[in-house]
Nucleic acid binder design. Structure first.
Lengths: 202, 202
DNA sequence: GGTTTAGTGGTACCACCGTATCACCAAAGT
DNA sequence: ACTTTGGTGATACGGTGGTACCACTAAACC
């Protein structure tokens, strides 16, 4: 055998290239050759590590969600030890907002995938259910923790508010993406609703 | 000259076919030939009325938003004369939710266009700013009317709540579209927030 | 009534995209 | 050392998509 290259690492490299170039030019406009050029490898290599475009796309989606989760973990870790429920929730909601290159790419490409999954049975729709569900569980559990700690109204509907916060940040994110709103305005709206939920009840 | 066909009507027919087939198979998968087949005309005809695909797409977007506005007007009219602010707002928010074939098609295709507009400079991004802005103005004005009538808290931030309601319905709509949530669940969440805003203050 | 011309059909062209094929290289195992 | 085989490059192929071209029809106008 030759070079003895780490397969998984190479696949990740290429998938990252896919996400990067899709973030710039739009997922619909990306072909295998574009991914190869972006990754600095030959077309054949892309074919070698992912036999088909469908598999490449699948791996790209996985790459995207993995990175998203990692950045949320980074954010939570950045607020210091023992992050409170509000800080945790805010980390999730703000990471979903397109404020810099990475979050912008995530929001755009993820939405592109979501739209594709509606009509292309090849692309599994399950990730777009499981991912959001996991986020919903996380936010709901943190809200429950906050309610039990007396940080919120005792009659708060945890499930409904969790769903709302996530839908809100997704919707705001899209409005930022298309240029209707600034990231700062969107952040302010999100904070307003967190303030509403976490207002100190005397 | 021959048949003396109404150009504008024909263009509308074809644009409607585009929206219809894009709603079923995804905007990315649609070519001129598909539109022609769906409209029951020849490929040449599509070329004749819209010289290029880009112009066809542009007209399709316009078609989409026009239909959306018309359906909202229908909804408002359906609640009887002198619709209150809550009924008007509810009409806007519920129409944005994918509950039947038409709203589902609208949400899917509109989102596809929005994603396209981010990266394709050919597709104008302005419609995705003006449309939402108009909706925001409508909701905000109705909220203000409600506040002045004492239907809501007197210190309600009209602008923020208008933005929130629309972002919420957009985000919920997407979650319904990908199958994470039922239309009924999404509707309940929306109603919950309307109840919150319109709770009778004694 | 002939000429013009809006409308329509069929089909061809060209470029691109995903995939397949062929050849080659170099390191690992015996 | 030599074979085996993982990795890599260049290129070819079939299909398809947007656009262009050509022919024909039939209605309107003089």
């Amino acid at each position: 055998m030759p070079k003895r290259v780490d397969h998984e690492e190479r696949r990740t490299q290429i998938a990252e290239a896919l996400v990067r170039v899709a973030g710039r030019r739009g997922l619909h406009a990306i072909g295998m050759r574009d991914v190869a050029a972006e990754a600095g490898v030959s077309l054949r290599l892309v074919q070698y590590y992912f036999e088909t475009k469908e598999k490449l796309l699948l791996h790209g989606l996985q790459q995207l969600t993995t990175g998203f989760g990692a950045r949320i973990a980074d954010r939570v870790r950045a607020v210091g030890e023992a992050p409170g429920p509000r800080e945790t929730i805010e980390a999730v909601l703000l990471e979903a907002l397109p404020t810099d290159e990475e979050t912008r790419t995530f929001h755009l490409v993820y939405t592109s995938y979501a739209v594709l999954s509606v009509t292309d049975e090849a692309l599994a729709a399950q990730p777009f259910i499981d991912g959001p569900n996991a986020a919903e569980e996380l936010v709901a559990s943190q809200l429950e923790r906050a309610r039990d700690a007396g940080l919120t109204a005792p009659d708060m509907d945890v499930r409904t508010e969790a769903i709302s916060l996530l839908a809100l940040s997704a919707g705001l994110g899209t409005s930022v993406l298309v240029g209707q709103r600034t990231p700062e305005a969107a952040t302010a709206v999100l904070r307003h609703h967190l303030d509403r939920l976490f207002r100190n009840r005397g």
